[in-house]
């Protein structure tokens, strides 16, 4: 009886498995194949073309002593923390504001979402011009009479990374707003009514009832924002080209520059492998935790 049921289950799954096989094969070859190739090249002495001269972890040693790589790591950490916090906060506040049944809601929604339709290259160039002290805001302030006004962050090595944060928050806040708005609209009106009957102030309803109910929206937004942190490349290229000096270099740009312009495959792949390991180290515990939660829910 049990065996028959099992057979039946396998039987009913077989077509699905056959249908998925090509996709699975492509994923295996593309992801696992290219990833292992990348890891292998990082252990060789490859220059412009790949070779198979094994040199162990020498590239990683070079990487650990490379000022530009270390600056890239520090930059992406600063950028990631500030960008995610600011984008989530501003996105949520925008959504909460629009959710108050304001007039011209659809117009505001489009306005806030508009930056997200811009490519990073366009975003970067526009912000670069606006922040350029001889063309943008600073010059405008000088021209209207504030001769002492200073906003030259983009040309200051110790401040330039914050200008990348400003531009990318401007770019992403609208998307976060859209996700949060969907989450807010998903909250049953009865819950609002019940909380109001209890006489809770609005901010407490948000903090203690609504936000915990919107875990899904926050998780979605976090995943999307986190991927854009890891792959941050084109904004840095368009806005500052990594400069002044190496002050706004990021890991993905390091990999691209060493792959192509500098003909140093081994060091580029060592950097890429380091990025991969970092992401896995961050994501694995979270994944594990999610899996456990799902299993617990299954048992309950």
């Amino acid at each position: 009886m049990v065996a028959a049921a099992k057979r039946l289950r396998i039987g009913s799954r077989l077509p699905a498995q056959i249908a998925l096989a090509p996709a699975l094969l492509i994923a295996l070859v593309l992801y696992c194949g290219t990833t292992s190739w990348t890891v292998w090249i990082s252990l060789t002495s490859s220059r412009m073309l790949p070779n198979s001269v094994f040199v162990g972890l020498r590239q990683y040693d070079v990487l650990a002593n490379n000022d530009r790589w270390l600056a890239s790591i520090a930059n992406i950490a600063t950028f990631g923390a500030l960008f995610m916090t600011a984008a989530l906060t501003i996105g949520f506040l925008l959504a909460a504001m629009i959710d108050q049944k304001v007039r011209a809601e659809s117009l505001l929604r489009s306005v806030f979402l508009y930056p997200f339709s811009m490519s990073f290259i366009v975003t970067g160039l526009a912000w670069r011009w606006m922040l350029d002290p001889t063309l943008g805001f600073e010059k405008l302030l000088h021209d209207i009479g504030f001769a002492d006004a200073h906003f030259d962050w983009i040309v200051r090595p110790d401040r330039v990374i914050y200008t990348l944060v400003i531009a990318s928050v401007w770019h992403a806040a609208g998307l976060v707003m859209a996700i949060m708005l969907a989450g807010l609209r998903g909250v049953d009106r009865e819950i609002w009514n019940a909380a109001r009957v209890d006489g809770l102030p609005t901010w407490r309803i948000f903090v203690f009832i609504i936000i915990p109910m919107m875990r899904g929206s926050f998780a979605t937004a976090c995943v999307l924002l986190a991927t854009s942190v890891v792959k941050l490349y084109d904004l840095s290229v368009a806005m500052t080209n990594g400069g002044p000096g190496i002050a706004s270099e990021v890991p993905a740009k390091f990999v691209m520059d060493y792959l192509f312009e500098r003909g140093n495959l081994a060091l580029a792949t060592a950097a890429a492998t380091t990025m991969l390991i970092t992401v896995v180290v961050v994501v694995a515990p979270w994944y594990h935790w999610q899996g456990r939660k799902a299993r617990m829910a299954g048992i309950a």
Binding site: R47, M48, D67, R68, P157, G243, P244, G245, I246, A247, D257, Y258, E261, R262, G263, N264, L267
Partner: peptide
């Protein structure tokens, strides 16, 4: 080769943009 040029370029660029980097540090690097 491009790999050497690139490595020196990064250092020269750092030196140009960072007044606190001394000539001694640049030469050592």
């Amino acid at each position: 080769p491009p790999a050497v040029t690139g490595a020196i370029e990064d250092l020269v660029s750092q030196f140009w943009n960072d007044p606190s980097m001394t000539p001694e540090v640049l030469t050592a690097k």
